[in-house]
Amino acid sequence: MKTRNFVAITISIAVVIGLLIYLRENATQDQVTLYSVLLWQLGIWIPWIIGFKILERTFKKIHKTKFGNFLLLGSGIIWVGLHFGWFFFLSSTYSPYLGLTGSRFGVYRYFFIFWTLIDVGLIWFIIDKLKGVEKEELPPPLLFELTRGSNKYFCEPTQIQLLVSENYYTKLYTTQGIFVMRKPLKSFQDVLPQDIFKRIHRSTIINVNYVSELARVDYKSLEVIMKDGTRRKVSRNFVKEINLYFRNRTS
């Protein structure tokens, strides 16, 4: 989750809570302006941006440790305590409701319910989003499980030389031989490292580390020659991209 998104969420919370308080305390509207209530709420909730950065750093450092979840929860509880301290300080000093009937420290009792629920909700929201980001950033699998007959083989991406689509199947040329998998080519493209696996045709993906030569067929056509002698035509749509890639890759 990006910081600017959380800033937008924090400002939205401040504005909504400010409006609710102002409308709820309609008897004081002749003494309190909506503008002052909104500024007060922004002052209370903006520090949650700092809390977000603290929880984000805490998550990155401790979530994989043995007691990571407990430490993360502890950090969240500590932050809620600090936020309550800030809330009391700001409200008892700058609240527009200071000195009004029924208020104490510039707040009314029901305020505490709002703040507690929102603080707990924000902790849950941030931790849940951070865990979601971590799952999205997981690296591609280190091994592919391939089958030939009744035997299973485990192949690293670096062992794959070439992938060719054949109808509903994909043929994988590897250092362990050729395998046919009932999966579309795109499913492999989505997980293979894009820095070394390049598409040269709608039906072909190559591992650039196994390329020995680029051969011109005519003015517009190009072939890739693999180290094992296999020749594959480069689609016209990819000729410029492949030429540029190898030009930048060589010294």
Rank of each mutant, 00 (worst) to 15 (best):
Y169C: 09
E134K: 10
W86S: 10
V107F: 10
L130Q: 01
D190N: 12
M181H: 11
G106A: 02
L98Q: 11
P139E: 06
G76E: 04
I62N: 04
Q176Y: 15
Y110D: 11
Y168C: 01
T174D: 02
V164W: 00
I127L: 14
G121D: 03
G99P: 09
M181V: 13
C155M: 12
T93N: 15
Y97H: 07
L82H: 07
R104Q: 10
F87I: 00
L172K: 11
F179G: 00
F84Q: 05
N151Q: 14
S92E: 11
Y97W: 13
L130M: 05
K186C: 05
F188V: 01
S95H: 07
S150Q: 11
Y94R: 00
D195G: 01
E136W: 03
T175M: 08
T158A: 13
L71T: 08
L163D: 03
D195F: 08
E136I: 14
G51E: 06
K53E: 15
P157Q: 13
T170H: 10
P47Y: 05
L138F: 04
W48Y: 05
K152N: 07
L117T: 12
M181K: 15
I78M: 08
I50M: 09
G85F: 15
F87Q: 03
D190T: 07
Y108H: 10
G76P: 04
P157S: 08
T65R: 09
F89H: 08
G81L: 04
F88V: 11
F188T: 05
V107M: 15
F70D: 08
D195C: 03
F111C: 08
K61H: 04
T116K: 01
I62M: 03
F105S: 13
K66A: 12
L143F: 14
I113Y: 14
F112Y: 14
M181I: 07
L142C: 01
G99I: 07
V80W: 02
G51S: 02
P141F: 10
Y110G: 09
G177F: 12
Q176D: 06
F188Q: 03
I54F: 05
K60L: 10
S95A: 03
D190V: 01
K186A: 12
Y97C: 04
L73I: 09
P96C: 13
L138I: 11
F59P: 00
I178L: 08
F87C: 03
L138H: 11
L73A: 15
V164C: 06
W48R: 00
E56Q: 13
K183V: 03
K186G: 09
